[in-house]
């Protein structure tokens, strides 16, 4: 029986976190759950600490979604999980699809499987600016990684230990999802996608504000562009941290 952990990054998600954890426990009773509290200013951490069957990783300050997710990947690696699933805390991700995502990873046809909003049969309608930014970016990222992914910004994804041990070592800081795909591709991992129907937020606020859509696009484009010139050595064990000279 493969060990699966669902990683949920949470920033000020007091309204939804408990119900998301409960839904996941009901939908996939065999999976472990770890909530990464990203320095929330509300009582998200206290709520999670009081829940049965969810591990709390409580960051002392707000690192942003990238730093929070990476904490989860490091946890998955050190606990020796086979599969890690990334899932939002706001209830947008359909947890009844978790086992479908994980199944695709387990059958060995892909190292990472993304639950995609844009593949036919979804009920998700983002704003115009965000849709434009995302579709341009998605197309570019998709071209870079050789096609097959239409929703590069989806944060609903399952992966095997090969993938999350890379992420435990290096993961983009903000708006990490598209860049993370390029990193995986550069390491020679296979990414697949299945359609899922996203749900409206159940509460809380989106971490991407409308006016930051431009920054989002430019930053991710730059990061991906520079990444193309980065030299990837054969992957070393993430726990073997590099030793920098001490000042």
């Amino acid at each position: 029986m493969p060990r699966v952990v669902v990683l949920i990054p949470a920033y000020n998600e007091r309204a939804t976190i408990a119900s998301v954890v409960h839904q996941i426990r009901d939908a996939a009773p065999g999976y472990d759950i770890a909530v990464i509290n990203d320095g929330s200013r509300d009582d998200t951490a206290a709520i999670v600490a009081g829940l049965d069957g969810a591990v709390l990783l409580d960051l002392p300050c707000n690192l942003g979604i990238g730093g929070a997710m990476q904490t989860g990947y490091i946890y998955a690696l050190r606990q020796g999980y086979d599969i890690a699933v990334q899932c939002d805390a706001d209830g947008q991700h359909p947890v009844d699809q978790l086992e479908r995502l994980v199944g695709r990873v387990l059958d060995g046809t892909a190292d990472v499987v993304i639950g995609s909003r844009y593949v036919a049969d979804t009920g998700y309608q983002p704003s115009f600016v965000r849709r434009l930014g995302k579709s341009l970016l998605s197309r570019w990222v998709d071209a870079l990684i050789g096609g097959g992914v239409t929703d590069t910004t989806s944060g609903f994804r399952a992966m095997n230990s090969r993938a999350f041990s890379i992420f435990a070592h290096s993961y983009p800081e903000d708006y990490p999802e598209p860049e993370a795909l390029v990193i995986l591709h550069r390491h020679g991992l296979r990414v697949a996608e299945i359609p899922v129907r996203m749900l409206p937020r159940q509460g809380g606020e989106s971490s991407i504000r409308p006016h930051s859509a431009l920054y989002y696009m430019v930053k991710v484009a730059l990061a991906i562009f520079i990444d193309l010139f980065r030299h990837y050595r054969p992957h070393t064990h993430p726990d073997a941290e590099q030793h920098e000279e001490q000042s």
């Binding site: 960051l59 002392p60 690192l63 730093g67 490091i74 946890y75």
Partner: peptide, 16 residues
């Protein structure tokens, strides 16, 4: 500081 914060969160979980 990111690495430190992450390690702190992971250690604190083990401690708990």
């Amino acid at each position: 500081s990111r690495t430190l914060a992450q390690e702190l969160a992971l250690l604190e979980q083990r401690l708990r």
